[in-house]
Design a protein around this nucleic acid. Structure first.
Length: 459
RNA sequence: GGCCGGGUGGCAGAGUGGCUAUGCAGAGGACUGCAAAUCCUUGUACGUCGGUUCGAUUCCGGCCUCGGCCUCCA
């Protein structure tokens, strides 16, 4: 079975055929580093991480590029508010972003280019667009001439007439056409700026992705991803710039993850349902956040709920309990991704279906009798988990996780109480044993007496 | 107004032109000093009205409804 991906450009699920089967290229729009990542930012990070993992199992080499936007008006505004330099803000925020995505088990991309390190490439591209008659200078700005591209609007499915009719923002007087957008704009001395043929200025939003994808993946490459909200205008404009500058096709498959909502409502600061990844990591392990996000197909809107997060934790408890029961048995076939899981992922990244198979594999593991069966089932479950970026941490670490600020009782204290209870049980002092169980249960600690002894976990 | 994507059992969430996932929650049973876990069994579905069809939750159309986008929010 081939890999199928839903291509926004054709609005269809298509067979993925890379330009070069020996080397797949993928570009995903990364964060603008002016604030901590919120859960909406986390979704594409997780979704495209799963795709990256899948591509790496299917192709010998994958280059995954995810940019850092470190020049932007929001950054300028925030730095001024905070009274810190732009460099300090972007560096601090980039570091925080790296910590957050690592906590979500997302692999680092192969290349993580920063916009400010690619101004030269942006300027070259803008000059090329002017030379080819697709851009023009006006009052220190350089604008992309939308009417110069007949196909403009195809990705987002809108005609140029609609765009003009729908324009709800006052059109700048220097624009030849209301739909024209900025490639380069003048920048005063107190804001970041670079010398250019049109004076000191800074880039528009879209040009950086065109320049950086060109730099690391070439003019035509396989996959371009991001959130659905980027389809218009960002990706439409990126596409226009690249195609018009190069005279070559741009991304061949466009993938977009659906929107994120919170408890059925749009996430917004005014509704008070705005969470950063950091906020959530204080309440739950990153792995649970990751699983919660993967229970909905990436193309659907995702509703973030407290209940969903709780269920994700319960699911991981179940899976890790199955692994804990075979802790002493070495896994077999750890590298062989079970075919059902592979098939689910190849069907346009059907992670809910893959999770179903995770459950089935856990059931198989629970039911396995012989050590050999257990070893194989364990290997299959771990391999399946790996494809989703799950189940890779130490089993005991999962069960001992505590929220930020620590637990009321340390692991050592709990271990000591468990030991005392074991002694009480051995001497048939069940009243004492039950008292210890009850005391621990009040702290949210569950004891489980199994064939291999007593284990505990935080609930 | 234009465009796009949804409406599945108590909840979450896949999927399929007929054999009706999976998990959580619920019920019953096995096991267990107790408990948990585990295993087995089990109930409740496909917004609405039409159409196509031998047969539709699945295809087509209308309607209702929810969400989103329409120039810099992933």
């Amino acid at each position: 079975m081939p890999l199928f991906l839903y291509n926004t450009m054709t609005r269809r699920k298509e067979v993925f055929q890379p330009l070069d089967a020996g080397h797949v290229g993928m570009y995903v729009c990364g964060p603008t580093v002016y604030d901590r990542a919120h859960i909406g930012n986390a979704r594409p990070v997780i979704v495209f991480d799963v795709l990256y993992r899948l591509l790496r199992t299917l192709y010998p080499k994958v280059t995954y590029v995810r940019n850092i936007t470190d020049v932007d008006d929001k950054i300028n505004a925030r730095a001024r508010e905070n009274g810190e330099t732009i460099g300090a803000l972007t560096e601090r925020t980039t570091l925080a972003f790296h910590q957050d995505v690592a906590a979500l088990n997302a692999l680092p991309p192969d290349v993580e280019p920063r916009a400010t390190a690619h101004i030269t490439q942006m300027l070259a591209m803008i000059e090329q667009l002017i030379a080819r008659g697709h851009a023009y200078e006006a009052e220190g700005h350089v604008l992309f001439a939308v009417p110069s591209m007949a196909e403009y609007g195809r990705l987002s499915g809108r005609s140029q007439d609609e765009l003009i009719a729908g324009a709800r923002v006052e059109v700048a007087p220097y624009k030849r056409d209301p739909a024209d957008f900025v490639l380069w704009k003048p920048s005063p001395q107190d804001l970041p700026g670079w010398d250019s043929p049109w004076g000191r200025g800074r880039p528009g939003w879209h040009i950086e992705c065109s320049a950086m994808s060109r730099e690391y993946l070439g003019m035509t490459f396989d996959i371009h991803g991001g959130g659905q909200d980027l389809v218009f205008p960002h990706h439409e404009n990126e596409l226009a710039q690249s195609v018009c500058a190069h005279g070559q096709p741009f991304a061949r498959y466009w993938l977009h993850n659906g929107y994120l909502m919170v408890e059925g409502e749009k996430m917004s600061k005014s509704l008070g349902n705005f969470f950063t990844v950091r906020d959530l990591l204080e309440q739950a392990p990153g792995e649970a956040i990751r699983l919660a996000m993967l229970t909905t197909h990436y193309h659907q809107p995702f509703d973030w709920t407290a209940e969903g997060l709780r269920q994700a934790r319960t699911t991981l408890d179940r899976l890790y309990l199955a692994l804990r029961a075979v802790a002493t048995i070495p896994a077999k076939g750890r590298q062989d991704l079970p075919v059902e899981v592979l098939a689910a992922l190849k069907d346009d990244l059907n992670t809910p279906q893959a999770i179903v198979h995770l459950h089935e594999l856990a059931t198989q593991l629970n039911k396995a009798v012989s050590d050999d069966d257990k070893a194989c089932a364990k290997g299959a479950l771990l391999a399946a988990g790996d494809a989703l970026g799950l189940l890779q941490q130490d089993v005991e670490a999962w069960f001992r996780w505590t929220p930020e600020g620590g637990a009321e009782q340390s692991d050592a204290e709990i271990d000591a109480m468990v030991l005392r209870r074991i002694q009480a049980r051995q001497s048939k002092d069940f009243a004492q044993a039950d008292a210890i169980r009850k005391a621990l249960a009040e702290q949210g600690i569950l004891l489980e007496d199994g064939a291999g002894g007593t284990s505990w976990r935080r609930s």
